[in-house]
Nucleic acid binder design. Structure first.
Lengths: 366, 366
DNA sequence: ACGTCGTACGTAAACGATTACGCCACAGCA
DNA sequence: TGCTGTGGCGTAATCGTTTACGTACGACGT
């Protein structure tokens, strides 16, 4: 049976009466403030426990003017990278006496609604945005509520953020293909459904082209295809690349999910991997190991943890408001990349490369 | 530049002065309560917008005694099944004007801390517990919060819950193996690290044994191994089963993650799947498709959505407090199950079964 | 002309805490 | 004894709202 909604069964006044002291003493005792003898403090605390009393967080917040709440906004909770970051964030905020309000914005419309209502109902000290772009008007909403903002898993304006170096990650992936001897290299990019521009696709594209140019290879525009984010998008993208004559000998995919979709297309097209086509992704998604996918590892949970810590530092005035943290990435070589098939058909090395061998030893390159 | 923490730049009194009315009228106008002429109401609302004023949720809650928040407690945010459920919950709560407070309890210690300190105390109307067991004392703590409780992805006492029928799911998996002709069937069970008993392992074990007995097959105790939850646990479990002479010809794994770990052990032991060993799991994790794993599908996001809806019904007094919802499961046959190798060695059908064939067509059995 | 009623609005008392301020008793010191 | 300082505690103001109640006033019926 629940009592009146929200009204506590026992409030501070009751406790005070019961203890024979004033509410002021109770407040002081419970909040470990000075001004109460240690004996009464102990007595009050014990009584509070026995009456299972706790202070009303709302009244307390109202009076003190603190909020002790942060909002975490995530685009897709069920996505590996984002839920990992969320986990990292929760981890570093765990001991901070902060409540976490969770919001999911899957569509443009939900995003808009979130920012419209944000100042209205939710009062938070900070907002952590996990990896999606926001518009200028939406930034104004954030300014209005005078909350700190931290971006996790991306970069956005001058906001403090924790992210990987997308350009460098793309270069690591591309250089791996180049070092293996590939020259005709394609890319499947994914913009992520948002109408707003986000730095990731542009950065990864930029990393790809600069790596190619640095190696003296030509970037062939038709070998760069844009596909929807996700596995089906990756499959589509690869189909488009396969329809080009001649197709690339290696493909850099925007992410592991895209790469895995691409691998599916290759299987259906009976193109052997890696001898007929090399594929590399970015993320080191758990599925990458299963698919034996060469990829560039990023520590998603670690980024979340750093973002949470950065937020605490900012709230505690221990960090510059514009701090940008770049977490390292590294190449994980698995079974989907190899040198290209020699141009002159010769006894091809089609001996069954044991598909699981490389999961045992992840050779890690800078 | 942030002003005083938590104190709004402009409060209702300021607005009232500016509008030339009393705070009462402002409150009435903004909350669409009767007692204000429509003209003043409009005027006040416009002024509020132009001063970008919003009511203090804390003061409002304090006075009204409402909370409009629910807590979601999850054991492992980054796990596919739980983040999917969380996603489903968020989805059905989205339009309900409820904020979601998120708590993670990964370890026994965190769980204990959560229940001892009840950070959600006096803050939420309801608590959704995602798939982990709680002790009797902890239930008493929950009562203290005087909040509604809903269990998602499991069953717990008399609390309303949304879950699959674990017994039936285990039977579906086991029967599939039995129908394929297996007789010596093992099981890798996983208790999930908690010291508290949870219904899932017991139910799945029970489903396994009843299916076996119903088919007139004997349950061999040493073929039932307990392993830690997760892929490495599954690998360990399978190693133990392989060390038994003779090993089983088929294995039912507690979950897809366990099954995938088991598959890894089989690869390392050079046991071919499915001809040398059949494996079936439960979940239909996205990785199951990649691993071509036969499994029993459960709709994780759907369960979350139902749980969220159930919560709304309970808060709106539209559902009996003890409602239990069972969501259906179905077998998805893929490539890790097949009839056992005939006992008399004969021309084995080791022609390469195309490992991806069945991902194209998921034959679904009740 | 006079009650009566409904509407629009203001006044003020909560809601449950925190905290500045004041009071009192007692200890220390001359 | 008289003065001052300090620790322990109570009084009351306050945080920003909501809302029960009171009042003023125009409309209406008789």
């Amino acid at each position: 049976m629940r009592s009146m909604p929200g009204r506590p069964a026992v409030n501070m006044k009751d406790l005070a009466r019961e203890a024979g002291v004033s509410v002021a003493s109770v407040s002081r005792a419970l909040s470990d403030a000075p001004g109460v003898s240690s004996s009464t403090r102990r007595r009050i605390k014990e009584l509070a426990a026995s009456m299972s009393y706790t202070v009303s967080p709302d009244a307390s917040r109202l009076k003190r003017g603190s909020r002790n709440r942060v909002a975490v906004v995530v685009r897709d909770i069920a996505h590996w990278a984002y839920s990992s970051m969320l986990q990292g964030i929760m981890g570093s905020l765990r001991n901070a006496d902060l409540d976490v309000l969770l919001y999911q914005v899957r569509t443009e419309q939900e995003r808009r609604r979130f920012f419209e209502q944000l100042p209205a109902r939710r009062q938070v000290d900070a907002v952590i945005v996990i990896a999606f772009p926001i518009s200028d008007e939406e930034r104004q909403c954030l300014e209005l509520m005078d909350a700190a903002v931290v971006i996790a898993g991306g970069r956005l304006g001058d906001y403090p953020s924790v992210h990987i170096d997308d350009v460098a990650a793309a270069q690591q992936a591309t250089n791996h293909l180049i070092l293996a001897g590939h020259e005709r290299i394609g890319m499947i990019n994914a913009g992520g459904d948002w109408s707003l521009p986000y730095s990731q696709p542009a950065d990864r594209l930029h990393g790809f082209t600069t790596a190619m140019e640095a190696a003296g290879l030509s970037v062939i525009p038709e070998l760069i295809v844009e596909a929807p984010w996700g596995r089906t998008g990756g499959a589509e993208g690869m189909n488009r690349l396969l329809s080009i004559a001649p197709p690339p000998t290696a493909v850099f995919a925007f992410s592991d999910e895209v790469a895995i979709g691409a691998l599916r297309s290759l299987r259906r097209a009976a193109v052997t991997v890696p001898s007929g086509m090399s594929v590399v992704g970015i993320d080191d998604h758990p599925m990458a190991e299963l698919s034996d996918l060469t990829t560039v590892h990023q520590a998603a949970e670690g980024q979340g943890a750093r973002a949470g810590q950065l937020l605490l530092d900012i709230l505690g005035d221990n960090a510059a408001p514009g701090t940008q943290i770049t977490t390292p990435t590294h190449l994980v070589v698995r079974g989907t990349t190899a040198p290209p098939r020699p141009k002159r058909p010769q006894p091809a090395d089609d001996s069954p490369r044991h598909i699981y061998a490389s999961t045992e030893i992840d050779r890690k390159w800078g």
